[in-house]
């Protein structure tokens, strides 16, 4: 059992957490509208119950008058249902639009890879800088998070950005945000993930652009993911089949990223991050047309961090890169 101390952001109780992005204030607007509507409905309901309770108490004698005629009653029911349905439709569209903004495809300035594991968050910056349980981010940049998990399901929760995304083993999930307020904010794991779930928390640090560059500069930087990935590509033996003359047994990988590949099954598939990841762990799943399913699986031998680095390396290769510099990586 780990005894590491948890570092929380130094924030008091905020019933409405600080809005660290424009998106956060848009979500809050939806919240306030719903609060107002619900408050109104509850007031009317309680008002009616209390009002009827007094007015029609059995202690008051006297005639009650006729009950509401059935026709009128039905009109009231239908009218009420329609008014609700229409206002629900508005809320549905509003909330759905925000949701697509958060999770949908968008142009981002850079990507941070996040890996959840029992019980810590590991983040990789584009330049190779890594950190654990803390995430440093520059202000006014659109950041894409690409998440996965090494073991069970976790959920990366940043309340100040009204953002949460599950980190699921075996797949990549994405979300993006553009922080506008420098400061320290909370970071939680929101999906129950075992014994130390409550300690899988940390902080998000939003820095000015200059401070972010300064922070990156002070980190003991390892090689960039592309360079690290190139080394891994060799040490895991990938280059033996996928590169140079050997690429008779296996497809060459320079320029493969983003291309549509014909599979042996007759399907077509786009070579995105998830495809590359699958091809490393479950090579038999999508065999490229014209090749034998001979690649061994690297499951259990390679970590999610390393997969991210190999993918970064493959993504960095333009088409024909290996042809021009024959012998590169040999």
């Amino acid at each position: 059992m780990s005894t590491s101390s948890v570092v929380d952001a130094d924030i008091g109780l905020e019933l409405i957490p600080t809005q660290a992005s424009a998106y956060a204030s848009q979500v809050d607007n939806l919240y306030f509208v719903l609060l107002a509507l619900s408050g109104l409905l509850i007031l009317v309901l309680v008002g009616l119950i209390v009002g009827f309770g007094f007015r029609y108490s059995s202690k008051r004698s006297g005639e009650r008058g006729k009950a509401v005629p059935e026709k009128l009653g039905q009109r009231i029911e239908i009218g009420f249902a329609l008014i609700l349905a229409v206002s629900f439709l508005g809320l549905f569209v509003w909330a759905g639009w925000l949701y697509l903004n958060l999770y949908g495809e968008t142009e981002s300035d850079f990507t941070i890879n996040v890996i959840g594991k029992q019980w810590m968050w590991k983040a990789q910056h584009p330049d190779g800088t890594r950190e654990i349980n803390t995430l440093h981010i520059p202000v006014d940049q659109t950041v894409k998070l690409r998440l996965t998990s090494q073991d069970v399901i976790h959920s990366f929760s940043l309340p100040a950005l009204r953002l949460k995304r599950d980190a699921v083993p075996g797949m990549y999930t994405e979300a993006h945000f553009r922080a506008t307020e420098p400061g320290e904010y909370r970071l939680f794991c929101a999906e129950y993930c075992g014994t130390e779930h409550a300690r899988m928390r940390g902080k998000l640090v939003v820095l000015s652009q200059a401070d972010y560059q300064g922070w990156l500069g002070r980190q003991g930087k390892g090689p960039s993911p592309e360079v690290a990935g190139q080394d891994l590509f060799r040490s895991y033996g990938c280059s033996g089949c996928h590169q140079g003359d050997a690429s008779v047994r296996a497809p060459t990988l320079d320029g493969v990223f983003g291309r549509t590949r014909p599979l042996a099954s007759g399907e077509m598939i786009e070579a995105d991050e998830a495809y590359l990841r699958n091809s490393i762990l479950q090579p038999q799943k999508h065999v490229v047309a014209g090749y034998e399913p001979v690649m061994p699986s690297y499951k259990g031998q390679i970590s999610e961090d390393e997969i991210f680095q190999i993918i970064a390396y493959i993504k960095s290769l333009p088409a024909g890169a290996w042809k021009q510099s024959t012998g590169a990586g040999q």
Binding site: L34, L91, L102, P159, L163
Partner: peptide
Amino acid sequence: FAIGGLTGIFLAALALDVHLHDT
């Protein structure tokens, strides 16, 4: 039940649910 039902509307609203899910 009314309070429970109305807060269910908050959670049916996609973007709000993302913030409130698992809290």
